Amino acid sequence: MHRTELADFLRRCRARLGPAEVGLTPGPRRRTPGLRREEVAQLAGMSADYYTRLEQARGPRPSRQMLTALARALRLTDDERDYLFHLVGEEPPRDRSSSEHVRPGLLRVLDRLYDTPAQVITDWGEVLAQNAMAAALVGDIMGRPPGDRNIVRGFFTRRNDAPGIFPAEDLEMHGRLHVANLRAVLAARPDDPGPAALVAELRSVSAEFAALWEAHEVALRHCAVKRFIHPVVGELELEPEILLSSEHAQRLIVHTARPGSESAERLELLRVVGLQDLAPRQEWAL
């Protein structure tokens, strides 16, 4: 591990980013350019002390999950992400079709969406990034451990843990959509270990998933409107729009309300309420 080179690289990447570029409020005048260390730590989901030690060339060797989180927080390109991995002595991920590294362009768009729920997910349901509105609507998925951020797994294994996000009458439709999408992904990339492992896991632990998988449905249409239930603002009818990455393996999903509708008013209320809602949320939506 090249600690000195890693520390210098992290400092330079941090210095080139401003708060507005990563969706943060600039706040009072800053004495130094770029993000503060604690802001990078917040974006990466690590302690400020841990990140500070990395920049001071005295930290422990970061895990692959931590390197992925740092690359995302610092908005690194694919080449910069690979260089970061090499500095630590790790082999960079080679299968970019399902990489957890969010493309900087998608993150820049996500950072500018402050008044509507949006998040970046892989085509098989791994949540890679979400904005504050998405966290307020469906829960802080990025606050979960790196291996537990898949919305399909959550839908079939964690639905009874907290108040529902979707109306009960919509659950069958969402389940069928999840399974049909997974089947299409697995057919397109049969050698990708991520989707294959998820299908095998869910077939063994969820009778509901296993039954839907055996039904072999592949021609389902995506719903034009999704209904969400929030414990504070009530029911919202939101229209999903999907922006695909160039490889189509990552999707930026944005949910908007029809202007002038009751849902638009409730979405604005949700923006004001934000993360002040402390009620347990099921983190398996969008």
Rank of each mutant, 00 (worst) to 15 (best):
V273K: 03
H216W: 00
R158P: 02
E201K: 05
P240D: 07
T256P: 02
A264R: 06
C223S: 08
P146S: 14
L186C: 08
G260H: 08
C223T: 07
L243G: 02
R176S: 06
V272W: 12
G143D: 08
F155D: 00
H255L: 15
G164Q: 13
F156E: 01
D161T: 12
V218N: 01
A210V: 02
L243H: 06
L212H: 04
I229N: 15
V152P: 00
L267S: 06
V199M: 05
Q250K: 13
R227S: 10
G175C: 03
R158I: 12
H178F: 11
R266D: 15
H230Q: 11
E262N: 11
L182D: 01
R158G: 09
L238V: 06
P167Y: 06
R266S: 08
A187R: 09
A162K: 03
A210R: 14
M173I: 15
R176W: 02
A196E: 14
A211N: 06
S263L: 09
G147M: 06
R266I: 04
F209P: 01
E172H: 07
E214A: 13
Q250T: 12
E241M: 15
R159A: 11
Q250L: 12
E217I: 01
G143V: 03
P259R: 15
A188Y: 01
V185N: 04
I253V: 15
G143R: 05
R158A: 14
E241F: 15
A210P: 01
V233E: 10
R144F: 08
L212T: 05
N160K: 15
P146K: 04
E201S: 07
S261F: 12
L243E: 13
H230N: 15
R251A: 06
R153W: 06
A210N: 07
F155L: 07
E262H: 09
V254P: 02
L212Y: 01
Q250Y: 09
V232Q: 14
L236E: 13
H216Y: 01
G143N: 08
G143K: 05
V218E: 13
H255C: 12
R258A: 14
R153G: 00
A224D: 15
S206R: 10
I253N: 01
L270Q: 08
L212E: 09
H178R: 01
T157N: 04
F156V: 09
T256Y: 05
H255F: 14
T157R: 04
E247A: 13
R176Y: 00
R221S: 13
V152M: 06
A211D: 15
A207T: 13
I242N: 10
E247V: 11
R158E: 15
E208G: 03
R158V: 10
V272A: 14
A188C: 00
L270N: 08
R266F: 05
P146L: 14
P240L: 04
H248D: 05
R271S: 15
A162I: 12
E235F: 04
H248I: 10
H216L: 04
A196R: 12
I165D: 08
L202S: 05
G147C: 07
P231C: 12
E235N: 03
R144Y: 10
A219R: 01
H222G: 09
A180I: 05
S204T: 14
E208F: 02
R144E: 10
A211Y: 03
A264H: 09
I229Y: 13
L238S: 11
F228E: 00
R176I: 00
